[in-house]
Design a protein around this nucleic acid. Structure first.
Length: 978
DNA sequence: CCCATGAGTGTTTTT
DNA sequence: CACTCATGGG
C-alpha cells in the first residue's frame, strides 16, 4: 500500500486521505499530529498532483517549521520539500511582502522591528507624552489592538477615557515605525493581509493551505489562512483546543468554530490515541484538563502501559527543590543503567524571566553589531542608530541626542541624515553641541559611511559576514568588550564569533540554493521586486535574526556532534510540541502556575496540562512549601495550585520519586521503545548515589535529619518495595573530579567565584557532575583528586569580596534562579548541582555567613539549557468579534474507529507494571513518535553547557555563561542573611 | 551645563 | 541585566 500511509492508525489515515477540501484534525498531545500533517502534505502532492510551490504550510514557530521540513524531506525528498512554501506565518508573510509589497506601497528594504525596537519606540513616546502607562503594558495593548486590526483612529472612536492616552502613544508608535521603514511583528501579518486582499493574484497559484497548531491562530492569521486559500479553498488544519496557551498573544480558540461556520463543508477528524506517555501520566493530565467544565469531553487513549505514577513532591524551599531535581536526575540516570541520558530530562518552567533575560543580556554584544548593520543596511533605522550612537562610548549623551532628534524632526528628515548634515556643517542644532560630542559623531559617521561603501562593493551573499568583521574591527569591538565586561568578555566575544559564523553559513547556504526556499513562484502578470544582491543578502540576514531565528544552519558540526548532553530547561510555552522521557515541572504553587498576573485561569490550567503531557515515562511535579521571598502567606508558605486538588493528588500521584527497580526500569524502556538495560548496567552507577531512594527530604517536604547516620530508608514513602540495593555510603570521598579549569580560571579574576567549588562532602560537585557526565550516560567520574579543590575553593570564597558580602545562603527565589545561578562563575557553564547530602548537619539557615561548604550552597545548577521551543497562542479576553462561546465545538465527523481498546489503559493501581504487558498497545500500532529525531534544539540561546564541552555549539548567536548571577547572588545572599 | 558612574529596584507567557 | 535616581568630574 501507499508508503505514505505506513505506520498510521485508522484515524490518522482518514485524516491524511480525506477528500474533503476543508479539513480539521483535532489532535491531542502525543497523537501524531505532525506526522499526520506531513503525511497529508505528501498525500496531496502525490495523489492530487499539486506542485510543491503551490502548497502553503504555516506553523507558528521556527522550530516547528524546521521540524516539518525535516520530516517532509524524508517523506517526499528534499527536492520537493524545498519548493514548498513552508514557514511561520511571519516568515511567509515577510516573503510575500518583500516580493509584492510594492503593490501596496510598501517601501523597499523595510526592516523588522523586534520587541526591543518596539519597546524603545514606545518608551520614547511615553516619555514625550508624559503618560503614566507602563511601557510593557502599552506594548502589549498596542499589539493586541493591532492583532485585532484596530488602527489608532478606530481605537480613538470607540475610545474609553483610559484608552485615549494609549491612542496617542499608538499613533506615535505607528509613525515612528513608518519613519524608519520598519514593520513590527503584527505589521507583517496585517500588511500581508492587505496585500492579498487587494491583490489576490499573488496567491492565485495556491492549491492547498495547511496550518499547524491552529488553536494558536489569532484573527489576522485566520484571515490570512483564508486569503492564502482564496482561490481553491482547500485547507487542512491541525490543532487542539486543550493546548491553547497563547491567548495573551491574541490567539483565538474560537477560530475552530469560526472556520466551521465559514465553510459548511468542513470535515473534522479526531485523533485520540496517545503514543507518547505512560497511561499513568495521561490519566493525571486528563483529570487536570477535565476540570474545565466548559470544555467538550474528549477521549484520549493511552497506547502505552500504565508505567509508574507521577510524582508530586513537596520540598522545604526553592533551593531544596532545585537540589532535589538534580538528585533525582542523577538517581534516574544512574539507576536505569544507561537508559537515560541527560538530554532525556527536561525542566519546564512557568516563567523563565530570569534565564531569558540573561540570555538576551548576553546577546547584547551581538545586538550591538546587528544594530550597526541595520543602520548600514538602512540608514532610516533611527532606532538602531540611537542604540549605537554612543556605543562604545563616544561622549554623546542624552542632551546631544535630544538636540539631534528634535532637529531631525523639525527638519523632517531621518536622524541619520540630520546628523550627517550637522557634522558636515550643512545644518546646525538649536544649541551648540559639545566639542567632544561632535567629534564622537564624526567617528560614527565615518564608520557608517565606510561600511556602506563596503557593502556596495560586495555583490554577493557574503555581505553580512564581511560587514560584521569590518565593523567589529573598526570599533575595536573586542577591546571594548574587555573593557566593559572584564569578567566574561570572552564569552561575549564568543557570541560575536558565533554571529560571524552564522553569517558565513547563511552565505554558503544561499549560494548553493539560491532559488530555493526564499523565492516565491513567479506568477504571470505580477512582477516581483528584485534587489541588489549584497543588500538583499544583508536584509534577509537581518530579518532572519529579527524573526527569532535560529537560522538553521543545518549541520551542526560534524564531529563529535552528540546531541549535546544537557538537561533541557525551558518554559512551558516553548516546550509545546516537544516531548522528553522525564519531565520536571517545579513550582506548582498558586501564583506561579496560575500565575498571579494571569488573566484567564483556564489558560493556566491548559498550560499545566501541556507541561504534563510532555512527559513520556516519568513525570515529576514539585512545590516548595515555603517561598521566602515572595511570601504568600506569613513566612512565605505556599499553597498548591488549585489545579491539583487533593482528590487528584491522592489518587494520581505519589509523594516521592519512585523506586527504580527492574520492573519500573523495564517499563520505562518499553515506553521509550528502547532496549532494556541489563541488570549489570543497572547496578553499575549505584555506588555513587547517596541513596537509591528519593529520601533526602521527607514526603512532607522537610529535611530528613535521620538520614545522616543511619541507613534507615524510608522507602515506604514511595509505596514500593524496598529495592534491594543499598545505598552506597559514600561519605567521604570526594569523588569529584575535574573541575579544574574552572577553578583555575576564575581565580585569576578574583572576584568571586566561589560557588562552584563548594563541594560539600563527598559528592561531586555539580560541576564535576557535568563534567563527568555530559557525554555518555551516566558514568560517574572516576576517582577524584579530591580534596584539594574543595579547599581551595573554600578558602577563596571565604573572603567575601568587599562589601557585597556574599553569603551563601542562597535562597533563591525560585528554582530558576537556582539553576541559573550560582554555579556559574565566570565563564563556566552551568553546572549541575549535586549534592546530596550536606555534610554534617550544617543547616544553612543558621550560619549564614560562613560555611560555605555546607550543603546549602551547593548550588549548582544544572546545565542550563538550551532551548526554546515553540509557542502558540491563545484566547484573549477581548471584546469579541464574535460571541464567545467557548468551547462549543461540534464534531462534524466522527473520528476514528470507535476504538475500543482493551481496557488496559487504565489500571488504577500503580502496580500495574505488570509484566511486559506494557507494550501491549505498542504492538498494535506502530510507534511513531518516540524521541528520535529530535534534538535539543539549539536555539538562540543556548547556554552554557556548551562551554564545557569542547565543541562550542552553534546557534545563532548567543552562547552564554552565567555570570551576572554572581552579583545577584551576592545581593541576595547578603540581604537575606541580615 | 553635560556626561559618566554607582546604587537600588524589579521581572509571565512570545512571533 | 534594564531601568531609574543620585553624585562627581570636566
Amino acid at each position: 500500500m501507499d508508503p505514505i500511509l505506513d505506520g498510521l492508525n485508522h484515524a490518522q489515515r482518514e485524516a491524511v486521505t480525506s477528500s474533503g477540501s476543508i479539513l480539521q484534525v483535532l489532535a491531542p498531545p502525543g497523537s501524531g499530529k505532525t506526522k499526520t500533517l506531513t503525511a497529508r502534505v505528501a498525500y496531496l502532492l502525490s495523489h492530487h498532483k499539486y506542485q510543491p510551490q503551490d502548497v502553503i504550510c504555516c506553523t507558528f514557530t521556527i522550530k516547528a517549521s524546521r521540524e516539518m521540513r525535516e520530516r517532509l524531506a524524508k517523506l517526499i525528498g528534499e527536492k520537493l520539500e524545498s519548493r514548498l512554501i513552508l514557514g511561520t506565518f511571519h516568515s511567509i508573510c515577510r516573503r510575500y511582502l518583500v516580493k509584492y509589497g510594492y503593490l501596496i506601497g510598501l517601501r523597499k528594504g523595510f526592516g523588522i522591528a523586534d520587541s526591543d525596537d518596539t519597546r524603545a519606540i514606545i518608551r520614547r513616546s511615553i516619555k514625550r507624552l508624559k503618560s503614566s502607562i507602563e511601557v510593557k503594558a502599552a506594548q502589549g495593548r498596542i499589539s493586541r489592538h493591532k492583532a485585532h486590526g484596530l488602527s489608532p483612529d478606530a481605537l480613538a472612536d470607540r475610545a474609553k477615557a483610559e484608552e485615549l492616552e494609549l491612542v496617542d502613544i499608538y499613533r506615535d508608535y505607528e509613525s515612528a515605525l513608518a519613519a524608519s521603514n520598519l514593520l513590527d511583528y503584527d505589521d507583517l501579518l496585517l500588511r500581508c493581509g492587505d496585500l492579498l486582499r487587494d491583490h489576490p493574484e499573488c496567491v492565485s497559484n495556491v492549491q492547498a493551505v495547511l496550518v499547524d497548531e491552529f488553536q494558536d491562530t489569532n484573527i489576522i492569521q485566520y484571515e490570512l489562512m483564508n486569503l492564502f486559500a482564496a482561490k481553491n479553498r482547500r485547507i487542512t488544519i491541525v490543532g487542539d483546543p486543550d493546548q491553547s496557551i497563547y491567548g495573551f498573544r491574541s490567539a483565538e480558540i474560537q477560530n475552530l468554530k469560526r472556520m466551521q461556520r465559514r465553510y459548511s463543508n468542513t470535515t473534522v477528524v479526531l485523533l485520540e490515541d496517545n503514543y507518547r506517555s505512560a497511561a499513568s501520566i495521561l490519566n493525571a493530565a486528563q483529570e487536570v484538563i477535565e476540570q474545565d467544565t466548559s470544555r467538550p469531553a474528549k477521549a484520549l487513549q493511552a497506547t502505552h502501559s500504565f508505567g509508574t505514577l507521577p510524582v508530586l513532591r513537596r520540598l522545604p524551599n526553592p533551593n531544596a527543590e532545585a537540589q532535589w531535581m538534580v538528585l533525582e536526575i542523577k538517581r534516574c540516570a544512574a539507576m536505569t543503567g544507561g537508559l537515560l541520558r541527560m538530554s532525556d530530562f527536561a525542566v519546564l518552567l512557568r516563567s523563565a524571566s530570569l534565564s531569558t533575560q540573561i540570555e538576551t543580556a548576553f546577546g547584547r554584544a551581538v545586538k550591538i553589531l546587528l544594530n550597526y548593520m541595520r543602520v548600514v543596511s538602512h540608514t532610516g533605522h533611527s532606532d538602531a542608530l540611537m542604540n549605537i550612537v554612543n556605543v562604545p562610548p563616544r561622549r554623546i549623551g542624552d542632551e546631544t541626542i535630544k538636540q539631534l532628534t528634535s532637529g531631525a524632526e523639525k527638519a523632517k528628515i531621518p536622524l541619520w541624515n540630520f546628523i550627517k548634515d550637522v557634522i558636515q556643517g550643512r545644518r546646525s542644532t538649536e544649541k551648540k553641541l559639545q566639542k567632544t560630542a561632535e567629534q564622537g559623531l564624526c567617528t560614527l559617521v565615518n564608520l557608517i559611511e565606510a561600511s556602506r561603501q563596503k557593502l556596495q562593493e560586495c555583490e554577493d551573499a557574503s555581505a553580512p559576514r564581511v560587514l560584521i568583521e569590518f565593523i567589529a574591527e573598526r570599533l575595536s569591538f573586542q577591546e571594548y568588550l574587555i573593557r566593559t565586561y572584564p569578567l566574561d568578555e570572552d564569552s561575549r566575544w564568543a557570541n560575536v564569533r558565533e554571529l560571524m559564523h552564522q553569517a558565513s553559513e547563511v552565505a554558503a547556504f544561499e549560494e548553493e540554493e539560491v532559488d530555493k526556499e526564499m523565492d516565491l513562484p513567479e506568477i504571470e502578470g505580477v512582477q516581483q521586486q528584485q534587489a541588489h544582491s549584497g543588500e538583499e543578502a544583508l536584509t534577509r540576514f537581518l530579518a532572519n535574526v529579527a524573526l527569532a531565528t535560529e537560522i538553521t544552519t543545518r549541520e551542526e558540526s560534524k564531529e563529535g556532534d552528540q546531541p549535546s548532553e544537557k538537561v533541557t530547561i525551558s518554559t512551558i510555552h516553548a516546550a509545546k510540541g516537544l516531548e522528553w522521557p522525564v519531565v520536571f515541572v517545579p513550582a506548582v504553587y498558586n501564583g506561579s502556575i496560575p500565575h498571579s498576573r494571569a488573566e484567564v485561569v483556564e489558560e493556566e490550567r491548559r498550560l499545566l496540562y501541556v507541561a504534563m503531557t510532555r512527559a513520556q515515562a516519568l513525570l515529576y511535579l514539585s512545590i516548595p512549601i515555603r517561598q521566602p521571598r515572595l511570601g504568600e502567606g506569613e513566612d512565605g508558605a505556599t499553597t498548591l495550585t488549585p489545579f491539583l486538588p487533593p482528590k487528584l493528588t491522592k489518587t494520581r500521584f505519589r509523594p516521592t520519586g519512585p523506586s527504580l527497580h527492574e520492573k519500573v526500569v523495564y517499563a520505562i524502556a518499553d515506553i521509550l521503545r528502547r532496549p532494556r538495560p541489563s541488570l549489570d548496567d543497572m547496578y553499575k552507577g549505584l555506588e555513587f548515589l547517596p541513596s537509591t531512594l528519593d529520601d533526602r527530604w521527607t514526603p512532607e517536604g522537610e529535611e530528613d535529619h535521620s538520614k545522616f547516620d543511619s541507613t534507615s530508608t524510608s522507602h515506604e514513602a514511595s509505596g514500593e518495595p524496598n529495592p534491594k540495593r543499598r545505598r552506597s555510603d559514600m561519605n567521604q570521598g570526594a569523588k569529584s573530579t575535574t573541575y579544574m579549569s574552572s577553578a583555575g580560571y576564575t581565580m585569576n579574576n578574583s572576584t568571586e567565584f566561589t560557588i562552584p567549588t563548594t563541594v560539600s562532602s563527598g559528592f561531586t560537585s555539580a560541576r564535576d557532575y557535568i563534567a563527568a557526565n555530559p557525554v555518555p550516560p551516566a558514568e560517574p567520574a572516576s576517582k577524584p583528586p579530591a580534596g584539594a579543590d574543595a579547599d581551595a575553593a573554600g578558602a577563596n570564597k571565604s573572603k567575601p569580596l568587599s562589601s557585597t558580602g556574599r553569603k551563601d545562603g542562597l535562597t533563591q527565589a525560585s528554582i530558576s534562579n537556582f539553576f541559573s545561578g550560582p554555579g556559574s562563575s565566570q565563564k563556566r557553564e552551568p553546572v549541575l548541582p549535586s549534592h546530596p547530602q550536606p555534610p554534617p548537619s550544617r543547616r544553612y539557615e543558621g550560619a549564614p555567613s560562613q560555611n560555605q561548604r555546607s550543603g546549602a550552597r551547593s548550588i549548582v545548577p544544572v546545565a542550563l539549557s538550551s532551548h526554546r521551543v515553540q509557542p502558540r497562542p491563545l484566547i484573549p479576553t477581548r471584546p469579541a468579534l464574535e460571541p464567545t462561546n467557548p468551547n462549543g465545538y461540534t464534531w462534524l465527523a466522527a473520528p476514528s474507529k470507535p476504538t475500543l481498546k482493551p481496557a488496559r489503559t487504565s489500571m488504577t493501581q500503580e502496580q500495574s507494571n505488570n509484566t511486559s504487558g506494557g507494550r501491549a498497545g505498542a504492538d498494535e500500532v506502530k510507534p511513531e513518535s518516540s524521541t528520535r529525531g529530535f534534538r535539543p534544539a539549539t536555539t538562540f540561546h543556548s547556554t552554557t553547557m556548551s562551554m564545557v564541552q569542547q565543541a562550542p555549539r552553534r546557534t545563532l548567536g548567543i552562547r552564554r555563561s552565567m555570570n551576572g548571577w554572581q552579583d545577584r547572588m551576592k545581593r541576595e545572599g547578603g540581604g537575606q542573611s541580615s
